[in-house]
Computed example of a mutant assay.
Amino acid sequence: MAAGPNLAVVAHAADDLRVEEVPEPQPGPGEAVVSVAYGGICGSDLHYWTHGAAGLSILREPMVLGHEMSGTVLVAAADGTGPALGTPVTVHPATHDSYLGSAALLPHTPGVFARRVALPAAMLRPLPDAVSLRSAALCEPAAVAWHGLARAGDVRDRRVLVIGCGPIGALSVAAARTHGAAEVVAVDLHDLPRRIATDLGATSTLAADDPRLTEVGLDVDVALECSGSRPGLASAIRATRRGGRVVMVGLQPAGEQPTLLAQAITRELELVGSFRFRDEIDDVVAALGSGLALDAAITHEVDVTDTAGVLDAFGTARNASVSGKVLLRF
């Protein structure tokens, strides 16, 4: 094993986040040990920190957070499956019934915010030589964006609207451009996310309170609603042309939600949901290997040995006006 304590970021309860030493991983059958390089803070990590729950998944015991990561194989799986020793990897975080860093089950499924973790070798995705470990930490959120775009259908030569340019929205801009969209209009409340979206390929940007979003008239072919807000969904419906498609990528609040259904019906819109991803992470890895640049989405990076800095990093990631993707360096 590598030298140094196995530091991890552990959620104990709401408002109780700690950087602490955890036991060294003991790989089971078909598992490899990965030396984690980077982990990206996601919305679900923030929910476990602030609320002690992410949706219906409630913390009932301390849990290592994180499901976005890159690293290097430190111990290959003993059965010979999966990547060899020394292979740089990212991870597909879905298990058969849960997700890494999820409290859906008891015992909870530990995440990857630790210096060394044991993971099923089948979850690991080797990285092309040209892909840095820093860039590879974006593979999981980019796969969410790629899946949302897959739900949108063929966007080649189409006009695409992306509402909400946090990390998923910004990466959705990149996905749309990568897949041949002729125009991508990016919408956000704040200046920084709009600038990031421009860096990732948006052809124009709008403030979320722009009058053009409160009237029917933008006439985009596809709208990707990534804010998870009722106003964002209303704007997406108004902005999409007759017969177009609205993809709901952002998770709306639980329970019944009012929306512009009459307008969606009379203009024959398709409203479709998008949740996580299937195998799109493989497409993202391949695209990065072919030169796709996504690093503009990264705005902050902090080392796990800086305990105060890690706690500050979670606060920074929560503030969409000052951050894009916030990385932890292990």
Rank of each mutant, 00 (worst) to 15 (best):
249 V>K: 02
249 V>G: 06
251 L>T: 01
252 Q>S: 03
253 P>V: 04
254 A>D: 08
254 A>C: 08
256 E>C: 06
256 E>L: 04
257 Q>I: 05
258 P>N: 04
258 P>W: 03
259 T>N: 02
260 L>A: 14
260 L>I: 11
261 L>Y: 13
261 L>C: 08
261 L>R: 04
262 A>H: 15
262 A>D: 15
262 A>P: 12
262 A>Q: 15
263 Q>D: 14
263 Q>A: 14
263 Q>P: 07
264 A>T: 12
265 I>V: 15
266 T>G: 12
267 R>F: 08
268 E>T: 13
268 E>Q: 14
269 L>R: 03
270 E>V: 07
270 E>L: 09
270 E>Y: 13
271 L>S: 01
271 L>D: 10
271 L>E: 07
272 V>P: 10
272 V>Q: 12
272 V>I: 01
273 G>Y: 00
273 G>T: 00
274 S>C: 00
275 F>K: 05
275 F>R: 10
277 F>R: 03
277 F>V: 03
277 F>Q: 01
277 F>Y: 08
277 F>I: 04
278 R>N: 04
278 R>W: 01
279 D>T: 10
280 E>V: 00
280 E>G: 03
282 D>R: 10
283 D>T: 11
284 V>P: 00
284 V>A: 02
285 V>K: 07
286 A>W: 02
287 A>W: 04
287 A>N: 06
288 L>R: 05
288 L>S: 08
289 G>K: 14
289 G>S: 14
289 G>H: 14
290 S>A: 12
290 S>I: 00
290 S>V: 03
